[in-house]
Amino acid sequence: MRVAERTTHDAGAPARVPTEPAAHAATRPSRRRGRNREGLEAGRRGTRALLWVLLATAMVLYGFPFLYLLFTSFKTPIDTIAVPPTILPREWTLENYTNALGRGGVLASFINSVQTAIISTVLSLVLAVPAAYGITRYKTLSGRIFIMAALVTRMVPPVAIGIPLATMMASIGLSDTPIALSIAHTTISLPLSIWLMSSFFEAVPNDLEEAATVDGCSRLGALWRVVIPVVSGGIAVTAIFAFLASWNEFLFALLMTAIRSQTTPVVIANFQTQFGLDWGSMTALAAVYSIPVILLTLLLQRKIVAGMTLGAVKG
């Protein structure tokens, strides 16, 4: 586009009648410009190609493990342990899915995972949104200390709080319940949620709220009617992170659940026993377990992209 503009501009330059040598001289810069243009275009093509290569590499790096898992779930038992391993199944079978889904407790564990992840996500958002709003809008020292302290909790190894949490939950009669596990999961997702939401609130100009206040909104009304709709993309991103943190969490689920609230990650791990590893069934259940997250991400794709770019352009 710019090249075209420049060409037009050159074409509009005052006309001169060049002498023979001068005409010769005049063609030289235009050739140089032509060469420059070609060089620029070649450079752009190169950059684009490099970007595509990088993107493709990233896609392969991220996608291959999942594809391998998916292919393994369709392999026969002997194929899953082939030495050297094969990518595609030599013989396709659904036997692993039948085994995995037919195993006692799998459906219940799915329901438990959904319950736990939803409760934990809701808890995280309900706590993180007002906390982050307060921190960003009332820039106080205690707010700054609080947000740093929230981050510190992420630095503690989960096992260090897992065992005391399990003991506490047992002592208040919440042992082996989804609510106990959700609370435990909230301790993981809440700090990240507060940080994420803080950055999203930072991106919202104060003028918007002031305008809402002028129109008669209370502070809470402005938050509910103006700010939250603006940061809804950010909320979606935060919700996804909180949901995933709970959906995939293993250690707390291992320590705090038994019969009534065991979640699927523990059931998936149960395919590895002291006496062998049932790769086929394990990958089949893992593949099925990833479907809701993929669907959720696709459903909220627009919001996620909007959330990720929120605040990228300020002013």
């Binding site: 219940a108 564990s109 319950q115 939803i118 809701v122 989804p178 019969i259």
Partner: peptide
């Protein structure tokens, strides 16, 4: 969603059966 979550939280029940 909120109501479901609150309800589930209140009942504190899981899907593994009434142990």
């Amino acid at each position: 969603g909120l109501s479901t979550a609150v309800l589930l939280a209140a009942t504190a029940c899981g899907a593994g059966g009434p142990a």
